[in-house]
């Protein structure tokens, strides 16, 4: 016998939502996700013997020994500088170049447009290990090993597909008519691009740049092989001085904090633009 869903009449007021369990799940997810981060921050301030202790100790006198060691003995700030130079430059380059590529793909019709778009995407699909050896040989031949230029070029090339695909969608959302009225209003093509399209794209470009900056900042595999003493960035640097005969957890924790803190502070600072950029075109 089929159920009759129309038997009951409406109650006097709307039912109250009973969804407390959603909050429980959210809380659980937050705790699980945050715990390792909290633990990492805590280890950074632990004295060495506490950091090694089993079972772990939650209470300890905080110390800056690990940071002192990293900054004054290991020259951590030098690696931080390398990371900054490489990721900021490659972000600027890839976003600038990618912006024009994406605009061309979004606006103009040309033979093989779909193929070009797809080819750009497939570049991104390739696993890093597949190209590390050839890249190493190329860099060696071109004398790019252990240079800023080499790393910046490589990261720019790596991030370009991502930039192009992300911005292409946003460019397509900007009505072409706005450029057309600008042209009729007397502007040149580039003027219309600069004065009309770019201002409207600012949130999207900002969001893309932030994404790319994080990706470049965190890049490990290529940096490990292609950088040297002069240009080593933070991620490969951490390994060499934190993992020797035994893992010094306090140093590792402090190093991780030094890597993540700048990017976290940065993202918190720009999160408004970031979210605005990501949600652009979705809310109208």
């Amino acid at each position: 016998m089929p159920r009759d869903l129309t038997r009951i009449a409406s109650p006097d007021k709307p039912e109250t939502e009973r969804n407390w369990w959603v909050h429980v799940i959210l809380l659980a997810v937050c705790v699980i996700a945050m715990l390792p981060v909290v633990w990492m921050v805590m280890t950074a301030f632990m004295p060495r013997d506490v950091a090694k202790a089993v079972p772990p100790q939650w209470l300890f006198p905080p110390t800056l020994d690990a940071f002192r060691m990293l900054i004054f003995e290991q020259g951590m700030l030098g690696f931080l500088k390398n990371s900054l130079i490489v990721s900021v430059s490659s972000t600027l380059l890839s976003v600038t170049i990618g912006m024009f590529c994406a605009y061309a793909l979004a606006r103009f019709e040309f033979a093989g447009k779909e193929d070009v778009s797809f080819w750009i995407l497939t570049n991104r699909m390739m696993p890093a290990v597949a190209v590390i050896l050839p890249m190493f040989l190329i860099f060696k031949t071109l004398n790019l090993l252990d240079t800023y230029v080499g790393l910046i070029l490589l990261y720019t090339a790596m991030q370009l597909p991502f930039v192009v695909w992300m911005l292409k969608g946003y460019f397509e959302d900007i009505p072409r008519q706005l450029e057309e009225i600008a042209l009729v209003d007397g502007d040149t093509w580039f003027g219309a691009f600069r004065r009309v399209v770019l201002p409207l794209m600012t949130p999207a470009i900002t969001a893309t740049a932030i994404f790319v900056l994080i990706l470049s900042w965190n890049e490990y595999a290529f940096a490990l092989f292609l950088s040297g003493s002069a240009t080593k960035t933070l991620p490969p640097a951490v390994v060499i001085f934190a993992v020797n005969a035994e893992v010094s957890w306090d140093v590792l924790g402090a190093a991780c904090l030094i890597i993540t803190a700048p990017i976290m502070i940065f993202v918190i600072a720009v999160q408004k633009q970031f979210i605005r950029g990501l949600s652009m075109g979705m809310v109208r």
Binding site: P175, Q177, L178, E180, I181, V184, V196, L200
Partner: peptide, 21 residues
Amino acid sequence: LKPRHRNVGMVFQSNVLYHHL
């Protein structure tokens, strides 16, 4: 000629104005 050398004005159905200005 390109539009800017013609001195014509145009209004579309939608997207009539630059909405960032």
